[in-house]
């Protein structure tokens, strides 16, 4: 093989490698983000059973519950309380109400997010309703509950946490409709 072809092969391999590297980033990015504590949209530690950690009464974390829905998705979506104060390790329960305000069947999916990023891996969701597709019949009302607790080793600098849900419209004819995105690592 000539020197030129040899080098050509190496370079083509490098190009394919870099193209693959782009796709490898889908998981690399998630690994990197969790390593440095950046929040990403996919869930972590969704349901771990019991919290398991001891209740730390010396600390109180103020939690704010926020929701967002596009006006094009006519759902009344609210929590029964807008804020909580919890000790790390203690369970807290929030009830969310979903009301279909229209005469159409609505298909959607709740996506969960938390701020600050430091809290991202430091809580367990014992019961939750995110990352699965949902259906509301016309004028239907349903309730879902969120039960969560913070880990005892949550960064002491974190005293305020925001728990957020957004509802996104979904297409029930899509190939992946009904899929539940499993939490990673479990």
């Amino acid at each position: 093989m000539s020197r030129n072809s040899k080098l050509l092969l190496i370079l083509v391999a490098a190009v394919i490698g870099m193209f693959g590297f782009g796709f490898a980033n889908i998981s690399l990015f998630k690994m990197f983000c969790s390593a440095v504590g950046i929040q990403i949209s996919s869930p972590k530690d969704l349901t771990q059973g019991a919290a398991g950690t001891q209740i730390d009464k010396s600390r109180e974390i103020k939690v704010l519950f926020t929701t967002a829905v596009n006006d094009k998705l006519p759902i009344l979506f609210e929590s029964d309380k807008s804020r909580s104060s919890v000790h790390p390790g203690a369970l807290d329960e929030v009830h969310y109400r979903f009301v279909n305000l229209s005469d159409d069947t609505l298909y959607f999916r709740p996506v969960h997010s938390i701020f600050p990023p430091e809290a991202n891996k430091k809580y367990d969701m014992i019961k939750c309703f995110c990352f699965q597709d949902m259906v509301l019949q016309p004028r239907e009302e349903v309730n879902h509950v969120l039960v969560y607790s913070f880990h005892g080793d949550l960064d002491p600098a974190v005293s305020r946490v925001t728990m957020h849900y957004t509802l996104f419209k979904r297409d029930p004819t899509a190939a992946d409709w009904g899929r539940i995105d499993k939490p990673e690592g479990k």
Binding site: L11, A14, V15, I16, G17, M18, F19, G20, F21, G22, F23, N25
Partner: peptide, 11 residues
């Protein structure tokens, strides 16, 4: 170009 452009292509 060799290193960067394939990554753009992947995105």
């Amino acid at each position: 170009i060799l290193v960067a452009t394939p990554v753009l292509s992947s995105a």
